[in-house]
Design a protein around this nucleic acid. Structure first.
Ligand SMILES: O=c1ccn([C@H]2C[C@H](O)[C@@H](COP(=O)(O)OP(=O)(O)OP(=O)(O)O)O2)c(=O)[nH]1
Ligand SMILES: [Mg+2]
Length: 623
DNA sequence: TACAGCGAAGCGAC
DNA sequence: GTCGCTTCGC
DNA sequence: GCCTG
């Protein structure tokens, strides 16, 4: 059966806190059934049953597992697609939300573990070891098809999130989604894209899926594993998730106005039928005039890589190359290639910061972050002004679709991939699919979809200032608090993707209690906060809008931390992203850990800080 | 082989 | 309700 | 993707 289209299983290797797809050499060895292979000068042995890859040269080991083939909603619409045929088994089973059904069974069963015997024991904990990895190959694939599951209803679809979107995601005021009676129920046969969905989906489709990860590792059940992602919705094109700057000099170029370069801030690019014509929002595209040099930023532009900045020339000598790599970074991010995305971003920033014009890849190789691959691309870019690879990616339908879908808050690489697989490739198509019940979104996603065009617009600096005033006004009457608007605004940018506010008790140390809750409630009462996306005790994510004609909805993030962590929190929340990563890496070098609460040494001791400056100093970094 | 570190949400298993 | 796992987002 | 041994 399988054979040909045998859904090439997706094997992953365990990293530190997450699992990543494994390389070609390893995949090839697995496909060929080899138990040893060579790659980058090393010899490896692999034991699929045990779920282990061992570097025979160094003796180090990494765990292996196979992951569910289809991300989320495998199925969706066209059952046909992938799996179509295959999955006799699973099919019926799945049923709507109730995922469980499927659970473990499929795979396991079949599997029955092959011959090999190395004792199953291997996995330490593993009680459950149950699920034989090996099987995987066999087992899973089929399922893969995922289509299997379709719940009762015919349509595949990704089930939705748990019905109750209750808390979060609900629209604050009456507005929003909540209304949608439909949602929940309706979902039945639809593809769920919501969070849980994942798992849901998983089971739906691959049932086992959830469990899916067949590796021996899992102590017991277990379905997924957590990790983090990146991405920045708003800034669409402009900034990639994270940036790693090359130079160690974390200097703070003092803020300067960001010129035109960033244009792409807004616009959704996706003119779909059902789209709620965002008049204003559309304009915002034009409104990108922003960059306004006018409003001179006030603070430092930490690691912001002034791009397009000074005409003074200076670093813009390699701007073209930097732009190319930055674009590659953004695309890699869309494609779930987080490390490649980081690598391209690092290279782009390094080139942008390099004053001398690069005339060849070989010359550039001396720059940290530029290796053989980048050097080769630099040569091509210098010769033809373009990268064939990039030109192809720009036209790639999947990339275009991902770019549209990823604009929706709550739709990350996995769910976007599931949607694309389901044939949903634009905001319009997504709205349509949701309306028809083929795709179910959770509350936050519904808000994100409804306001996608508006939220894609950047916020001019002056407006952020107005938001700050609104936040302070709402704080009156409540417990005294210290509030600082951080993010790109505090870094002096002329326009921001959202409003990031940090609050702490003004006088009291210790837990924040309901500080955040009370604050948000008053913002909502004032009519300022319009929708909630996530609402916890220390972090709030939602949507707000200033009163007045023509104001757009904006993303609002509020973080509450104990007063004693204020400077660490300010450092974190002000960023930039690149600076945070750089400082945290520096801490790692020292064997320490830096987060938004503290800088902790190896011996557990915490470094006191009465200013952000203290933190730079403790790490031996230039402020 | 490592890649920053963590909050919120949601689901299945128990 | 707790725990493990995952996704998404900051 | 890059870096290091
Ligand atoms: O992955 C992330 C994302 C964000 N942050 C920190 C730094 C960042 O500056 C701050 C606020 O996040 P946001 O996404 O709002 O970034 P920004 O720097 O404010 O840019 P934008 O103008 O797009 O909002 O949170 C991180 O440390 N890691
Ligand atoms: Mg921001």
């Amino acid at each position: 059966m399988s054979e040909a289209p045998a859904p090439r299983e997706q094997w992953e290797v365990q990293l530190r806190g997450s699992w990543e797809a494994c390389g070609e050499a390893l995949l090839h060895a697995i496909a060929a059934g080899h138990s040893t292979y060579r790659a980058h000068g090393f010899t490896y042995s692999i034991d699929l049953r045990a779920g282990v890859q061992r570097n025979l040269t160094t003796g180090r080991e990494r765990r292996l597992r196979v992951r569910r083939p289809a991300p989320l909603s495998s199925p969706s619409l066209p059952p046909a697609a992938t799996s179509a045929a295959i999955p006799p088994a699973a099919t019926s089973a799945a049923i709507p939300l109730a995922a469980t059904s499927a659970a473990i069974p499929p795979a396991a069963t079949s599997a029955a573990i092959p011959p090999a015997a190395t004792s199953a024991a291997i996995p330490p904990a593993a009680t459950s070891a149950a699920i034989p990895p090996a099987a995987t190959s066999a087992a899973i694939p089929p399922t893969t098809a995922a289509s299997a599951s379709v719940p009762s209803s015919s349509a595949p679809s990704i089930t939705s999130v748990p019905s109750s979107s209750s808390s979060s995601a609900s629209s604050t005021a009456a507005t929003t989604a909540s209304t949608n009676s439909s949602s929940t129920a309706a979902t039945t046969g639809s593809t769920t894209i919501a969070a849980a969905a994942t798992s849901a989906t998983a089971h739906v489709s691959v049932s086992t899926a959830s469990t899916c990860t067949t590796s021996p590792t899992p102590p017991t059940t277990s379905r997924l594993a957590a990790s983090s992602a990146t991405s920045s919705p708003t800034s669409a094109a402009s900034l990639p998730p994270f940036n790693t700057t090359p130079s160690a000099a974390v200097t703070r170029h003092d803020a300067r106005a960001t010129p035109p370069a960033e244009e792409k801030g807004c616009r959704t690019e996706d003119s779909s039928p059902l789209a709620p014509t965002p008049s204003r929002a559309e304009e915002c595209a034009a409104g990108r005039a922003e960059e306004g040099h006018a409003s001179t930023p006030r603070k430092r532009a930490r690691e912001d890589e002034g791009r397009g900045d000074a005409p003074s020339g200076g670093g813009s000598a390699n701007e073209r190359l930097a732009d190319i790599f930055e674009e590659m970074s953004v695309i890699m991010n869309l494609k779930k290639e987080r490390f490649r995305s980081s690598a391209y971003d690092k290279a782009a920033k390094a080139l942008r910061a390099h004053a001398a014009p690069i005339l060849s890849g070989a010359q550039a190789k001396s720059i940290a972050g530029i290796g053989g691959g980048m050097a080769r691309r630099i040569d091509e870019a210098l010769a033809r002004g373009e990268l064939a690879e990039l030109e192809a990616l720009r036209r790639d339908d999947d990339v275009l679709a991902l770019r549209s879908l990823r604009q929706v808050y709550g739709v990350g690489p996995v769910r976007a991939g599931a949607l694309v697989a389901a044939g949903v490739r634009s905001l319009g198509a997504l709205r349509e699919a949701v309306a028809e019940g083929r795709v179910a979104l959770d509350g936050a996603q519904r808000v994100g979809l409804r306001l996608a065009e508006e939220l894609a617009c950047k916020v001019p600096r002056d407006e952020v200032a107005a938001h700050e005033a609104a936040l302070r006004a709402a704080a009156e009457g409540g417990p005294p608090l210290r509030l600082v608007v951080c993010g790109s605004y505090r870094r002096g940018k002329a326009a921001s993707g959202d409003i990031d506010a940090l609050i702490t008790h003004a006088h009291k140390d210790g837990p924040c209690g309901d500080l955040l809750g009370g604050f948000i409630r008053s913002l909502r009462a004032a009519g300022y906060v319009t929708d909630d996306l996530a609402f916890g005790s220390t972090k709030y994510m939602g949507v707000c809008r200033l009163p007045g004609e023509g104001m757009l909805h904006r993303r609002l993030d509020v973080r509450a931390v104990p007063r004693e962590n204020f400077h660490y929190a300010t450092l974190y929340f002000t960023g930039s992203n690149t600076l945070n990563v750089k400082m945290r890496l520096r801490a790692i070098e020292l064997g320490w850990t830096l987060n938004e609460y503290r800088l902790q040494k190896a011996n557990g001791e915490c470094v006191p800080a009465s200013s952000e400056h203290d933190i730079f100093e403790a790490l031996g970094m230039p402020y």
